[in-house]
């Protein structure tokens, strides 16, 4: 596995360049909104085993942190801003996420199918 990694390492630059192109080439996109410390919709369905571009709009004036232990993602989204988070490729299943600043209400899950 290590040698595999080494092979990949010097290609990282290319991977990064290709990354942007891949985004431009049209990855599946899903949008999510934060409104009144709530995720709308609270359930998202995404294709499994594919990298997905998640766009989160924070419609509240206050910042919120999108966090998911299952997705290994955390990102602060300031009030009125938009954030892009790449997730996946995911195995089929449910991946809960929450807003760390208002975890009681800001809850949701991503369902990979």
């Amino acid at each position: 596995m290590t040698s595999h990694w080494h092979k990949k390492w010097y290609k990282t630059v290319i991977v990064i360049l290709l990354g942007w192109m891949a985004v431009a080439a049209g990855r599946p996109e899903v949008t999510l909104e934060i409104r009144d410390h709530l995720f709308m919709p609270s359930e998202l369905t995404v294709p499994a085993n594919t990298k997905v571009k998640l766009i989160v709009y924070n419609r509240d004036p206050t910042p919120e942190e999108f966090e998911s232990y299952e997705l290994n993602r955390e990102k602060v989204i300031m009030g009125g801003q938009r954030a892009i988070i790449f997730i996946g490729p995911l195995a089929p299943g449910e991946y809960p996420f929450f807003g760390e600043f208002n975890p009681k209400t800001a809850q949701g899950k991503i369902i990979a199918q």
């Binding site: 990949k8 990282t12 990064i16 990354g19 232990y69 996946g88």
Partner: peptide, 26 residues
């Protein structure tokens, strides 16, 4: 590294193992 994966600078991968049942991160 995690941050670079999130920024899409490093490739995303499937997790190697899952110990969340044993000790949840939260």
């Amino acid at each position: 590294a995690q941050m670079l994966i999130q920024a899409d600078w490093l490739p995303a991968q499937a997790p190697l193992w899952d110990t969340s049942a044993l000790l949840p991160e939260g």
